[in-house]
């Protein structure tokens, strides 16, 4: 333990008298994994570690709809609701990405600091995107346990479900990143985030089968990629029986939408302002 005098000197910045150079400057091989890890730490791990209350929120958010649907259907739609919770968690990741990128850029100028460093845009965005999954982990673990108990399917069905969830994640981060480049402040960003969440994960039949929606409105639901994801997930786990043509069509739409959105996001990536 240092003496009071040493502490005072440190507080007053007395050690500045010494050489401030930290270590010899040298060029090293830079690690992309470190760059991705930085995004994960800043945007999820540190926040969860320093403010544990956010953990409660991340669990409750997808569970709230699940409980509502389960109670209203008297338990009949529990399996669909669990799958819906998983899809919504993956989709919410992209919506959060949009708000978080905008928040870090506009309120803390973090992106400006990172742009003027050896970090490529891909590492930065990937790190923040993965951090959204880490942030959703508490909810995903709870939903995963519920799925293991209440959703019965084959091994192929599990693989199919995981693939759907992964595509949903890619779709949402592409959408989130594109909108993040459009928003210039946090209020605008949260407005986009809420709008997209409502349009793509609340209105479409994510928590229940599409057959519950009356016909004219059903066509509107097909405007959302989450509808195709839910159909495929429900088909993979036996809650919905789709014709082979419809399964193929749903996969084509889901993969196509994901590819197009990723293409737009890559093209719109504005790492340096014009």
């Amino acid at each position: 333990m240092g003496t009071r005098a040493e502490e005072e000197e440190e507080e007053a910045g007395g050690s500045l008298e010494e050489k401030i150079e930290i270590s010899p400057l040298h060029v090293r091989k830079r690690s992309m994994l470190s760059q991705i890890l930085a995004g994960i730490l800043v945007n999820s791990v540190y926040e969860m570690r320093n403010y544990p209350i956010v953990l409660v929120n991340t669990v409750l958010s997808p569970l709230s709809f699940l409980l509502l649907i389960t109670f209203v259907s008297r338990g009949a739609l529990l399996g669909e609701a669990v799958e819906g919770g998983l899809i919504m968690s993956m989709f919410s990741a992209g919506m959060s990405l949009q708000a978080d990128l905008s928040h870090l850029k506009n309120d803390f100028k973090l992106q400006d600091m990172v742009v003027s460093s050896p970090t490529p845009w891909f590492s930065y965005v990937t790190g923040i995107a993965v951090s959204e999954i880490v942030y959703s982990l508490p909810a995903l673990v709870v939903l995963g346990i519920l799925a293991a108990y209440f959703v019965h399917t084959t091994e192929f069905g599990v693989v199919e479900l995981l693939l759907v969830l992964f595509l949903m994640f890619l779709t949402s981060i592409a959408l989130g990143y594109t909108f993040a480049t459009l928003s210039s402040d946090i209020v605008q960003s949260f407005a986009f985030s809420r709008l997209l969440s409502t349009l793509f994960s609340t209105i479409p039949p994510v928590y229940y089968p599409i057959t519950y929606i009356p016909l004219p409105f059903r066509y509107l639901a097909y405007l959302s990629p989450t509808t195709y994801a839910a159909e495929l997930a429900q088909n993979a786990t036996g809650y919905l029986s789709l014709q082979r043509f419809m399964i193929l069509f749903d996969w084509v739409v889901l993969i196509g939408v994901t590819a197009v959105l990723l293409g737009i996001a890559t093209k719109k990536a504005r790492w340096r302002e014009a």
Partner: peptide
């Protein structure tokens, strides 16, 4: 530029250096 409030100084500097590779 602002130091992110939910992080500590050590975490702030560490993460920036990770971003630099």
């Amino acid at each position: 530029a602002r130091a992110i409030p939910w992080m500590t100084p050590a975490q702030t500097v560490l993460s920036y250096l990770l971003w630099r590779g």
